[in-house]
Structures are given as structure tokens and as C-alpha cells.
Amino acid sequence: MNFIKRIITFQPSWTLRIITGMVSVVAFISMCLITGVLDISGAMAERDHEFTGRNIEAGAKYYFDQCARCHGGKGEGVDGLGPALSYDGFLGKWDPAKNTLGQSARLKAIGWTSSLKGYIEAVTAAGMPIKSSPIWENPHPPFALAYGGPLRDDQIKNIATFVVNWGPGQVAPVATQPEGGAGPQPTAAPLTAQQEKGKQVFLGAAGCQACHAIRGVAAGAVGPTMNKLATTAEARIKDAAYKGTAKNALEYIRESIVNPNVFVVAECPTGACIANVMPATFGTSLQPDDLNALIDYLGSLK
């Protein structure tokens, strides 16, 4: 009690006031000097480094959400959908001695005079105004909110930072390159009436296009792509991990629609596919005619 009384009736002596006052002022000034003046380049540059790193992380997230489907998880490109990004024809050659990227052949070819990052941001935001190469069916769509896309400006900047960060880790492109390589795609055989009906079911009643992509038809980005589905199905049946009962491609396609959880593949646009994402109700919700037409159509994709 006495101790408490001494604290609450405490009156600092003059010496104490002068000393603590002086010490506090000196502490304040030196702290300001330490953080604000002496350490300026060090601390601020370090923060800059950290935030660049975090921007790249955010860019990675958006890249895998939005870009990887067409440009590939390693930036290697996807055949028929989008060109490679992480190769020297686009980024320029990585110079380890200087820690920089060289001249980009692609930008030179199209006469882009601004920076690589600026080009990536501009194309991501506003899309390609023209079809710059006969190889890609669709020009790059706009992604910025301002141009009707889903992304904010800061997200687009992050994506560009992420893509440019591939500099030292470039991979060999697997996809057709706009600068040359493979020629135009082979034209597919015309669809029969039944298959045309199936295509309409795919786009309409069944709503498949919301999740699945077919080159030139649909661009869903949840489930596996349906390009060359018939060929893929043949390969799946022979796969050792395959657990279903299908004997041929059409049976496999039917099984995948009616009972999708029997065999869940690993190649979804955002990583491994997850069971139960695909509704198991199409077997009952679709008219038998429609279902048959749909299977016929999907089986024609070779």
C-alpha cells in the first residue's frame, strides 16, 4: 500500500526532469536519424526488394488464374491456344553477367518501341487489336476492367512483373510460335447433323462450355480441355491408373459425363482436377437424344 502511495504521489525531482527530458529528446532525434537519414538507402531499398518479391507472388497467382491456360504453367505456351512467353524470342536473351534481358525479337518484329513490361501490360490490358499471326485463331482478349476484362490495373502490373521475372529461367517453347515453326492447323472434317446438334448441346442445354474449352468453340477454364478428346480418351483407357469400365473412346466419354468421379484426371487448367467438381447429374438431366448427340460430337474431336 505504501509502495502504491509512493507511486501515485510521485513528483519527479528537477534533476530527474532535466535528465529524462534530455535523454528522451536525444533518443527521439537519434531514432529519427537512424531510421530516416542514416539508413535511408539500406532500409528503403530492402523494402523495395521485398515488395517487388510480393508483387511477383501476386502476379504468379493471377498468372495461374488467368494466363496459364493459354500460355502454360512454365510460360511454354499451349498448342493452338497461346504462344510461349518465357523464351528468348519474346523476353530477349538473359545475360547473367549483366543480370538483364537483351533485345526481344518479337517486339522488334512488330515494331514496339517501349519496354517489354509495357508491352506485356498493354496486351494483357487491352488485348491484341489485330490478328498478328495466322497461327492463332483468336487474338489476345482484353483483361483490364476498363476494356471489359476481369483484372484491375495493379493485377495486370503484377502479372507483367511475374512474366518478366522469367528472365533467367527461360524454357524451350513447346507451342507453335508466331515467328515460324508449324504451319496453320489442319482443318477438321465437317460435322454431321447429329454432331452439330451435340455441339449445340455442349454450348447450350448442358452448359459444358462454362467449364471446358474446345479450340475455336468454347473457352471454359475449370475442367480439362476437350481438344482432340477422342485421341485423349483412347490414351486414357490404356493408362494403368484408369479405373473405369470403358472399352473405347465413345464409352469413355459417356462414362466421364454420366459418372465423372470414376476416373479423375490430373490435367485441369489450374492444376490437378478435383473430384466432385463436375456434377454427376448429366446422365439424368440430359435427354437421351441430346446425350448421344453430345457424345457423338465430342468423339469427333480427334
Binding site: 526488394h49 521485398e50 518479391g53 510480393r54 507472388e57 497467382k61 495461374f64 492444376g271
Partner: peptide, 9 residues
């Protein structure tokens, strides 16, 4: 999924 950069501190 988290993406992690070497420098993010």
C-alpha cells in the same frame, strides 16, 4: 496454394 518469392522478407 501460396506463391513465395525469395526476397519477400
Amino acid at each position: 496454394t501460396n506463391y513465395l518469392h525469395r526476397n519477400s522478407g
